[in-house]
Amino acid sequence: MSEKLKVTNLVKTFGTNEVLKGINLTVNQNEVVVIIGPSGSGKSTLLRALNRLEEPTSGSIVINNVDIASKGVDIDTVRENIGMVFQHFNLFSNLSVGENIMLAPVELKKETKEQAANQAKQLLKTVGLEEKFDATVQSLSGGQQQRVAIARALAMDPDIMLFDEPTSALDPEMVGDVLAVMKDLAKKGMTMVVVTHEMGFAKEVADRVVFVDNGQILEQGTPEQVFEHPKNSRLQDFLNKILNV
């Protein structure tokens, strides 16, 4: 398995607050890595640093052999290959569902409107929303919006997908549809980094689970290792809290 993404000694500080304290993490091709940890542990910051939505303070992030943390890099080109899905979907509210998906391909890949529209319809089909092409964003439920957001990210044909708590803002009955789409993606071999509280998803889909607390990776391993035989006491505490509600 080849290395897709390698984070070395990543530090991020906000003022005097050190949020990431030297993270080292490798993600291989086709691997699904799930990051768990308590709120405020730095897991979202870590994920957002991977496409430089957060500017790293120090350390390197090498994706496809390019250090995206270095100054000279053209971040826009790098981002074209990294899909990002947000907790609050962030669909463009001035555009229709179809236009949300078509925007980047038309603007960046110079696809014609027809090509982009066909692709968008195809993507909507894979997330089970083919009839929503002309719908306004406001008319969709949260779960539908998140599935459109995934389709939008996929439209640029990325080789890594980042998910930042994709189901946290959803009503419980919507969560299943979104996770199903993500599972489907994993099955197709997409390299994924997912920050989530959905332990069920982690157990079922993750190749590796990473536990982050207080800006550091305290433990990582297969779902079985992490969930069944946690070694770190803080991880044990964390699992106790969320699994025995």
Partner: peptide, 30 residues
């Protein structure tokens, strides 16, 4: 305009100016 709109546009690889023109301004003008 919700900052998430800009983040989403930028994370797709759209440069600042394009994100502004296609996503932020249309919402801001309203």
């Amino acid at each position: 305009v919700d900052p998430g709109q800009m983040e989403a546009a930028r994370s797709l690889g759209l440069p600042f100016g394009k994100s502004m023109r296609k996503v932020i301004l249309p919402q801001g003008i309203r």
